[in-house]
Computed example of a mutant assay.
Amino acid sequence: MLNNKKTYTVTEAKSKLEHYCAYQERCHKEVIQKLKDMQMIPEAIDVIVVHLIEHNFLNEERFAKAYVRGKFKMKSWGKLRLTSQLKLKDISKVNINQALNTIDYDEYIDVFNDLAEKKAKNITEANIWKKKKKLADYLLYRGWESNLVYDKVNQLIK
């Protein structure tokens, strides 16, 4: 069976990846995977990644900050979920911490309270313990700290 996948020169791949990175912030892992999917050899991948970094198409710190901002605003993720997702993308601890520090503490607590109150209203469970568990599980899955979660659950559901 013939492999009909398109092959790319380093120049073509550079151009393609510049567009890929300009469209949306990317992390190194995503870019390397994209290059592997394009059948690029390891030496070419290294050359292209260096080019993208030097020309500021690829910036892990900027990616981490954009990722945190987006997931926090759109999906109301807590810091634990944000951290674990960034670790899966091989982002350094330093960049993760810098990104998390961009979240304003008061806004963080406001988003958490809004999310908890909205969800508590929508849980139709009659049993108080099951209702507490559902709310706690929901908030923990979203990556909110357990001390915040359990205090809020006990405050909202009596």
Score class of each variant (00 low, 15 high):
residue 14 K to F: 01
residue 35 L to Y: 00
residue 15 S to V: 05
residue 53 I to N: 09
residue 49 V to K: 11
residue 2 L to G: 11
residue 86 L to N: 00
residue 26 R to K: 14
residue 76 S to M: 05
residue 52 L to M: 07
residue 44 A to S: 15
residue 104 D to K: 01
residue 24 Q to R: 14
residue 23 Y to K: 15
residue 24 Q to Y: 08
residue 25 E to I: 10
residue 91 I to G: 01
residue 105 Y to R: 14
residue 132 K to N: 07
residue 105 Y to W: 10
residue 71 K to G: 07
residue 155 Q to K: 15
residue 118 K to R: 15
residue 89 K to F: 02
residue 109 I to E: 08
residue 98 Q to M: 09
residue 2 L to H: 13
residue 92 S to H: 00
residue 35 L to G: 01
residue 116 A to S: 06
residue 141 Y to K: 15
residue 125 E to N: 12
residue 70 G to V: 10
residue 120 A to G: 05
residue 29 K to E: 04
residue 69 R to M: 08
residue 126 A to T: 14
residue 100 L to A: 04
residue 141 Y to V: 15
residue 83 T to R: 14
residue 31 V to M: 03
residue 51 H to A: 01
residue 151 D to E: 14
residue 120 A to K: 07
residue 142 R to S: 11
residue 23 Y to H: 13
residue 78 G to E: 04
residue 75 K to D: 12
residue 19 H to K: 10
residue 49 V to L: 01
residue 31 V to Q: 02
residue 54 E to L: 11
residue 92 S to A: 05
residue 139 L to V: 03
residue 131 K to A: 04
residue 98 Q to F: 07
residue 45 I to P: 05
residue 141 Y to P: 10
residue 121 K to E: 12
residue 134 K to T: 08
residue 102 T to K: 07
residue 15 S to M: 07
residue 143 G to W: 04
residue 125 E to K: 13
residue 127 N to M: 06
residue 89 K to S: 08
residue 148 L to D: 04
residue 22 A to F: 02
residue 12 E to T: 01
residue 122 N to R: 15
residue 148 L to P: 06
residue 20 Y to V: 03
residue 27 C to W: 03
residue 1 M to I: 11
residue 144 W to V: 07
residue 33 Q to A: 10
residue 34 K to W: 03
residue 15 S to W: 08
residue 27 C to I: 03
residue 82 L to I: 06
residue 52 L to P: 07
residue 8 Y to G: 00
residue 74 M to F: 08
residue 52 L to Y: 05
residue 157 I to T: 11
residue 81 R to P: 04
residue 50 V to E: 13
residue 28 H to G: 12
residue 155 Q to H: 13
residue 66 A to V: 03
residue 38 M to N: 02
residue 44 A to F: 01
residue 87 K to H: 07
residue 73 K to H: 10
residue 66 A to P: 02
residue 96 I to L: 02
residue 87 K to D: 09
residue 76 S to C: 08
residue 63 F to G: 01
residue 19 H to E: 14
residue 95 N to M: 00
residue 110 D to N: 08
residue 31 V to Y: 04
residue 59 N to V: 00
residue 107 E to A: 06
residue 32 I to E: 14
residue 19 H to S: 12
residue 41 I to W: 06
residue 37 D to A: 01
residue 56 N to E: 15
residue 31 V to W: 05
residue 117 E to C: 05
residue 109 I to Y: 02
residue 3 N to V: 10
residue 67 Y to C: 02
residue 2 L to C: 09
residue 82 L to C: 05
residue 41 I to F: 05
residue 99 A to H: 03
residue 106 D to M: 03
